[in-house]
Every structure is written in structure tokens, then in C-alpha cells.
Design a protein around this nucleic acid. Sequence first.
DNA 1: CGTGTCCTTGAAGCGCATCAATGTTGGTGG
DNA 2: CCACCAACATTGATGCGCTTCAAGGACACG
Lengths: 242, 242
Amino acid sequence: MTTDCNRCPLRKLPAFVEFNRNDLSFMQKFKSGELTIDPKTPLLMEGSNSPQLFTSLRGMGLRYKTLEDGQRQVINFVFPGDFIGMQAAVMGEMCHSVEATTSMTLCVFNRSEFWNFFKENPERAFDLTWLSAVEEHFLGEALTSIGQRTAMQAMSWAFVRIFLRGQSLGMVENAVMPLPYKQQDIADALGLSLVHTNKTLAKLRDLQLASWSDGVLQINDLEALAEIAHTSSDPLPERPLI
Amino acid sequence: MTTDCNRCPLRKLPAFVEFNRNDLSFMQKFKSGELTIDPKTPLLMEGSNSPQLFTSLRGMGLRYKTLEDGQRQVINFVFPGDFIGMQAAVMGEMCHSVEATTSMTLCVFNRSEFWNFFKENPERAFDLTWLSAVEEHFLGEALTSIGQRTAMQAMSWAFVRIFLRGQSLGMVENAVMPLPYKQQDIADALGLSLVHTNKTLAKLRDLQLASWSDGVLQINDLEALAEIAHTSSDPLPERPLI
DNA sequence: CGTGTCCTTGAAGCGCATCAATGTTGGTGG
DNA sequence: CCACCAACATTGATGCGCTTCAAGGACACG
């Protein structure tokens, strides 16, 4: 049996706006099942037109684009609570791929119901637009990071973002959170080579600012990292959960 | 007097999805006036919470973010038909600035009406989400460009994008279109230095692929540019006009 | 004419990519 | 139990693409 939205473990996290009773029943109706996938399983492919939408319930993944010459740009990391597949739902096809990094459990929605959000539930439709706008915001920041910041600054920025994300999801304990990616993933996210990524990580470790190994990220000085990156270390605002 | 939406010059362009009678009257009701601004006038500032939304009717502008150390990242170029200010409308504050490059005329909407899109006109609400998703798509591509492509590839990509945009807006004649920006603007968009931007432009000119000077862009070989950048040169899909 | 803005070009140096080799860990089969 | 292999992390050496610095040219404007 699938998880009842009533008991969804994500709902009580500080990251998300509270559900009311109406939202609950509406979402429950929308939900069509649950999916569990293994690490490295592709969930959506660039150019695909999947009939399904997902919300990540557990585990982590990657969004990325690949160029014809094999280069890969990681667009974002997928955390619990992320809504996946809106591009396909709106534009008819995905313009990036999504794959699992760890084992993941996903809430599955039927795309044919997507339109009902707009027709029957303007609040939820607004939430969708909100999510889209937040993602746009994030990508603007990422663009700024890659375009204008040095490797040190970019990595500091990335760690601050990731850590704040982790905090809002209750994944942080004693300034430590799980981050089960490979160095190549971060390298592809920041537009750096694997080697330089490794050396930059070593520098951050030497400076006692942050250390990341064995899939665990430890932040020793969030403020200092934020200052290096010229970014804010304020907690993230609550976001709607779809 | 302001332009009647009935006679809006943008409507008949191939870039946009056709309006029906309902849309027209709805939009006309939503419209609260027109604004004309001079070059270099800031329209929206990062962090601001403007009560107004805009659609660009004429002229060109820039979206950009600035870092505390003075670096600037150009997020996108503003062309006629672009909807401006959705982030503030949805999230409560802009996360990038917008300013005019040429003189611009803008259609002004009242933000307090924004919610009516969702409440009264689900089709238009969907269009808003569509626009947001397209912008997200674009930023993903831009990220890939800056992160993975060389200067030559990135600039080829940018010219292809800009040219296709110009074509859909009827700005291209004999493979030539107006592009009234400065080299510094493109440099900040692609994360390159002014000097290297200049040299890359010279190279594209020498190779007879594209030349851009005096605010005019001439594309000599669109296919070759697209190939260099590993990108598509297909015409853009129609988009909704808000 | 002087001044400001933008474009252009050469020279020098650095940040990062690339190449190459080695270390570490976990899994697999003999 | 050890030999072997694959995947990932680490580290040094070399070189290129880009940034930075610097100077001059072209043009518009008061």
C-alpha cells in the first residue's frame, strides 16, 4: 500500500508550508501510486514526454543535461520534497534528465490530472507557479556562481545552499549532513574539472571551513563560507509541497 | 491613450500563440497603463517588491544580478513580448534587476490583479506557469553554456539563441537584426572578460560565421554556429503572450 | 578641442584543465 | 584467504584558455 498523504513524513518538516484539510484530500486524489528505484536509475530523460509526475519522498538524485560531445552539466540536486517533471507537463517534453543517486522513493502523479490543478484548485496552481519561480531564482544564482565566481567561491556557495537545504529538511545534526554524491557530480554542477574540484575541497578542508568525504558533509563555519561566496546564509523560506 | 490590446502589434507575430476574444477582454481589464522609459533606466531592482508587472512592447533591456564585489551576471536579454516581474508577484521580491538598454515601452499591469489569473482564468494561469517553465529551460541551457562550453562555443550558442528569438519576432531581414547591446553586456552574460569577448567576436567575424558591430548582428552561417555550439537551430515554438 | 564612452589590440600571468600515476576501498571469484 | 578488478579519491607536472593590465583608436557630445 502507498503512503497516506495524511502520514506523509515530509509534511511536518519546517521546509514546507502547512497543508490544510482540503489540500490533503485534493492531493490524495491526485496521487496515483508510489515508485521505488535503485541508484543510477534514470527517472526522466531529456526529450522524453513522460505521462507521470513525481514528488521525491526519500533519497537523492540529480538533474542534468548532456551535450553531444559527452559533457555533462548538473543542473541541480534532487532532495526529498522536490517536484519532478513539471517541464514535461507544461511544455510537452523534458529539457533535462533526472536520475537517482541513492535509492529513491517517489510519489507518482498522473499527468492527465495536471490540468485539474488549474481548473479546480487555483491555490495549488499558484503553488506550482511558485515552485517554478523558485527554481528560476535558483538557476539565476547558479548562473552567477559559475559565471562570476572562482572555484573557491563557487564551491562555498554550493555548500551553503546545500547545507541550508539540508537544515530545512531536518537532515543536519551537529553541523553534519549526508551528501551521497561523487566529486564528479559537484564538478559537473560547478563547471569545474574533477581534479580541480578535488583540490578545492582539500583547500576548504585545510582552512577548516567544510569537509566532505564518504558521502558526509560537515560545515565548520557557515558564515565564513557565505562570506567567501558573497551570499546569504539565512534559512530558506517555507515552500509548498506538491 | 494606451494601446488597445486589440491593436497590439505583438499579437500578429509568429512568436505568439493566438489570442481569442475572451483573452483579449481579460487582458484589457488587467492592463492598467503604459510606461515609456529611457535607456539605462532601472525598471525593477533586486530585492524590490514592485506593485507592478510589465510586458515589454517595444525596445530591449537586460536582466542581471550583481554580487557584492561589483561583478555582474547578465541573466537574460529582454525582448518585446517578455513578461517582467513574475518573481516579485509570486515570491514577494525580485531576485534580479531589470533595466532598459534602449528606450522601452511597457504594458503595465497591477499586481493586485495577479491572483485573478489563477482564480478566474485557469488558461492564463497555465500560460504563466508555461512562461516560467520556459525561462527555467532557458536558464538550464545557459548554465550548460557557461559551465561546459568554451568561449567560442558559448558565443555561438548565444548568437543562435538571439537570432532565433529575433526571427520569431520579425526583427530579422536578410540575416541581419538589431542587437543594441554593448560587448560588456555579452561578456557579463557569458561569464567572459570584455577583452576575450572582443577577441572571440573577431574570430567569429574572421571565420565568416557572424559579425556584430554598431548594434547590428549579422548571421552568415546559422547551421555552422549551431554545430559549433552543439545546439539546435530549429525555430522557437510559439509562446503565450501575457 | 577636450572629455567620456566604447571598441580594439598586444603582452604577461594565473586559474584552471588535462595528463598521468598512485592510493584506497569494496566486491568477486578462484 | 588472497588475487584481481572496478570505481573513486588523491596528488604532481605541464600547458592552455582565459583574465588582467595597459595603451591607443574611433566616435559622439558639449
